[in-house]
Design a protein around this nucleic acid. Sequence first.
DNA 1: AGGTATTGTTCCATTATTTGGAACTGAATT
DNA 2: AATTCAGTTCCAAATAATGGAACAATACCT
Lengths: 276, 276
Amino acid sequence: MLPFLSRADETMNANGDGMAQARETGTLGKLMVLLDLVTHADAPLRFTDILSLAGQPRGTLHRQLSHLVEEGLLEFDGDGRYAPGLRLLDFAARSWARNEFRLIAEPHLVDLQQATGETVHLGVLRGQSIIYLDKVEGRQPVRMYSQIGNASPCYCTGVGKAALSLLPAESLVDLLAGVNFTRFTAATHASPASLLAEIREIADQGYAFDREEHEAGIRCVAAPIWSDDRTFLGGVSITGPAYRLSMELLAQWVVPVQRAAGRIMEGMRIRLGPRR
Amino acid sequence: MLPFLSRADETMNANGDGMAQARETGTLGKLMVLLDLVTHADAPLRFTDILSLAGQPRGTLHRQLSHLVEEGLLEFDGDGRYAPGLRLLDFAARSWARNEFRLIAEPHLVDLQQATGETVHLGVLRGQSIIYLDKVEGRQPVRMYSQIGNASPCYCTGVGKAALSLLPAESLVDLLAGVNFTRFTAATHASPASLLAEIREIADQGYAFDREEHEAGIRCVAAPIWSDDRTFLGGVSITGPAYRLSMELLAQWVVPVQRAAGRIMEGMRIRLGPRR
DNA sequence: AGGTATTGTTCCATTATTTGGAACTGAATT
DNA sequence: AATTCAGTTCCAAATAATGGAACAATACCT
């Protein structure tokens, strides 16, 4: 069913990554670490906060931050606090608007939403996270940024586990080695071992459930999506509240979700040409 | 009415900018130019395309692109084409979700939307562009990224002209010197001169119209917003189709828009403390 | 107030990274 | 098989980043 699982894969990027590992991108890498620090903080940071977090000499840090501010990647308010810069929004808006995968997938997401009445997500695996590329919601107007673009853990989301099921065994182990398993709910996998067992099952079946593993009261079904050149691995999912989505109902949606995933992959092949 | 117009302003960032001007941010600046190039392109670019656009030696460009790809700011597909990276989405999602200004403004935007039934925008001036920070739409679920985060010209949007009316005369002239006036419609200002005249008027009145200057058939009313420390200048607007929004109707909405702007500014002062 | 600790900024010789020309590989085209 | 074009690698020279220390400004305490 998922032939890629067995085949050794040379296009997968080589480094196991580990995330905290020193990057090999020189100046840029150092600056990105800072940008990460500031964007991941709960509130704007003062110079000293960053100083202690980044462990850089004062002079160095000061210049680095100045450069980031000058480029609009950070903003520096009158109180001497650093916040993420608005230029990032412009970059992201363009990145999103033109994303081929998303454009191809969109109609199929809408179909799936209408067939089920529940919220549909599209996500891809990047590093150890799932980045949500799109979301089609049923009822109320959507505050989209709150979800789209957000990076979620791969080990406790439907899309995440579906994506992981596409990885060759070795890459999977490497990737999980770098993950630290935060326990969001009682159902969250707490170790690679139990996760690996489920992933194998998912690989056989071709679909994944999230049984309230990320957020209590929220369930989903997801089906994997991959590109021929394996540039990305990801998935589509249907998500909703547990009181409305019984496991039986979710089981009925396996086929529609898989069909949507299949159509999206077909769309990619047509759009991108056969040779990839 | 808008006292800031007359007062000399030392907090305004000093360089007239001019945009094409060589940046002073060393390595980062050069990389950002590349990132701009790729994200602003209509389609993914091949190495050679970028080579001709960037005017860098091949070896140099190749390494720079590799670094950007390694950091997830660009993606490199199997066909050797460079596209904006998805990591930008994650940065932006965080940047947006935590943005204080937006959080403070949001309820007032919703109020305004409900009072008028039309689409409400919140935008800030960054460089020569208006970046839309939020949008509250009436009817259909919103494809938000298509608007939020987008950078629009300041000289032909309601929010843009409202923001410009807050600038001291000198800064305004400097800023406009770097703008090239694209004529989007018959009503678009074609030169700084005619724009300046309108801006003066807007500064006196405290509100701005967009009379189908950016997009044919689309009108808006906007009111200016500023922070005490002038870290940002921006505005709120009500936008809609010309057939529904007569100039008379827009005139009736001047007061509600101004009131919303006033409440947002008040919210900022309370939240941020009096001393800024 | 006066003194002290804390925070933020600037400077510059040393160190590390980036640069860019040229040489190399591989694929597509004639 | 020969030729062009696209992409990648290499390394001495040029450039930018580093980090310690001195300086400035502000908050904190007594």
